[in-house]
Design a protein around this nucleic acid. Structure first.
Lengths: 216, 216, 216, 216
DNA sequence: AATGAATGAGATTTCATTCAT
DNA sequence: TATGAATGAAATCTCATTCAT
């Protein structure tokens, strides 16, 4: 799960000469895609951010779409790497594990990395030439969450797939509303876990809708 | 909260024949914005979808941005109208009320209306000339949710603002993953409410962190 | 065989307003393609030749390739039209018929029309998006020649298909070498026909291989 | 007429190992120019076909135009060399000589060598910097044909210059239509000679147009 | 109310060529 | 000899917008 996906890393090893330019190129692209979106960013702007000429980008990437793919790849790699570092590991207190991972996820998409923000902001269908590969990368990451959710001691009638999707939706939505709110990523993660935890450990059979609300 | 915002809507009611073209224009725009995004849709495509020529659109709207604004407006109006129709009203069983409203919300963004999907898909900053007004419209709708959440019997230490944001994030995320899943909007709403609802009858609610995870 | 292929003609009838621009566009393109080749001509040059901006061309044609196709189409239409006008008709003295048609063909590709020269100069594979259609147009014209060759009273063992191809090759080659030679198209046609025509009255025709060359 | 024109060829004979790369470079260029045309071929593609990097080509040739010139030169050299080898020599049965030479010509442009195909496909004006030299090379080859045509026992009123041009046109056209036809180059040459032979040995004075066709 | 034609600014992309290493 | 990276000029194409009719 931590394997390197991007060929770039190999290149870097093979030709150590001057390819911090490539890194700067990727950084500039990530930054701009995160802030202005994919279609809202021009190759000119990316080039300017790298102190390169627009045409020069095409030495490194054959198209804008492929450049986005590279950013996505790097973003997923980083997300996965950071989350694995924060993950206490399978078998450990599962809710605590979820909270740790969510905290890192939120930190990454909120403060950490333009790369991760791009994954959230840019929809795969904006770059038609690489849509499929973009989706595959997304799935790669979501598989990690699936694994963690699988370990949670949920009530038997909870749909784990929906649980996962709602959880991801709730977490990722943060990048829309939080610019500089008062709560830290860790605080947000704690709150989020709290909201999802207790209810889903209880069998729905008790049917609290009727018992509780009629009396009110 | 139910007042009509757009003057156009009144016209539509008064003279349903004359505004045919304008309605079709908005419909086509909504459809395309929902499917291909704002930047990914050209005025030519919208015109083609209306059997109009590109130049003719400018009789009705001064710019593409304003056209988006109109679609947004119509989308919010429709969402609000449908939700008010589904809403049992303040004071009624608050969780049931939330579920009813969420079911309609999900139905609208999943099956119902391209207009509502646009609100989800297009970020306000994609149309710089009307960003502020786009955000205002969004807020208008979210205020409804705020009101409903305010009535929920939550534990005193729950941050209702975060609760609302997580809820909206979880719900809206559905449009990313659900193409034709097995569950109905109502089913999804029920599951979502259940995940967020703390049943007081559940013994696990009493400090579950320590009781449960220490033993594992 | 004289049916109009190009939609343009219809448009001209439908919207008589100002589309001499389109004609000028096609003329300029034909002229430049004929003189500088397809790849050697830029959209800027074509636009300049039409007193139009480069982008404006795309209102009329979706790509440079399609513009070439339109020129080709017009070229074939003109060639066919002129040749049908010069053709004395099936059943008439077949060698004379061939000569008349060849004279017109040569006149057209040498002096007459840039459109026809384009057909000779630009290979179908230079415009990948329309290669097939370009070849189809070429075939359309060559079918006329086939028909005329079919009527020639040739010796039974002559391969008419090869005859036709050699004839076309010989004729079209003229555009490479003739800038301002002394002979008229009609003169060239007469000479060309003579070279391909076997006069039965000629005694040398009786197996000249053996009679002539053994003695040398 | 058989002198080697390109110094490179001598070198190649003297040091066949060292020039490997250069030969492969020329081969790749010839292949690509033949198939995709001059303008349709990029330096990158040529480099790729040589397992070289684009920049490296410029060690061997100062420009793309000069590279084309070298291919042309090699092509003409090869054509001349092969044709001289096939030529029975001046003074021998002239029609048989023409046929032998044409057979080799056809074989070369059809199957034999990308180099020769380049001469046919690429017009001198596509490489402005070397246009004159390209034409000179072409003329060098055509002079051989002129010499052979000069020996043919044609009727006195036949224009030998036109005869030559039509012949070359007919022969070279083959590369347009023949991909994998049933006839061998030798067969094509025989047919071509037959078509040109008998008629041109007869004085045109007999005026067969009238005698023959009136009766039909 | 609508249209057909065009504009113009700017987007992505191409590619022969250069040059320090 | 050769290379990797980059350049820069120019190419094709896009598209919201304008405007006389």
């Amino acid at each position: 799960m931590s394997q390197q996906i991007l060929a770039k890393s190999d290149k870097a090893a093979a030709a150590p000469r001057a390819n911090n330019r490539l890194d700067r190129l990727l950084d500039a692209a990530a930054e701009l895609f995160a802030v202005k979106g994919f279609r809202g960013t021009t190759m000119r702007e990316i080039a300017a951010g790298t102190e390169m000429l627009p045409g020069s980008i095409y030495y490194h990437f054959p198209s804008k779409d492929e450049l986005l793919l590279a950013v996505y790849e790097e973003g997923v790699n980083r997300l996965i790497a950071r989350i694995e570092a924060a993950d206490p590991g399978a078998g450990r207190a599962p809710w605590g594990r979820l909270e740790a991972v969510l905290a890192m996820h939120l930190e990454t998409i909120l403060d950490g990395s333009a790369y991760a923000q791009v994954i959230n902001r840019v929809l795969p269908d904006e770059a038609p030439k690489v849509t499929t590969r973009l989706i595959a990368l997304r799935d790669l990451y979501e598989a990690m969450v699936t694994e963690i959710v699988a370990e949670l001691p949920l009530a038997p009638d909870v749909d784990r797939s929906l649980f996962r999707l709602f959880l991801i939706g709730a977490a990722n939505h943060a990048h829309v509303w939080r610019r500089d709110g008062p709560r830290s990523p860790a605080g947000l993660a704690a709150e989020l876990v709290r909201l999802f935890r207790l209810p889903s450990e209880c069998p729905a059979a008790i049917n609290p809708d009727t018992t509780r609300e009629r009396s009110s």
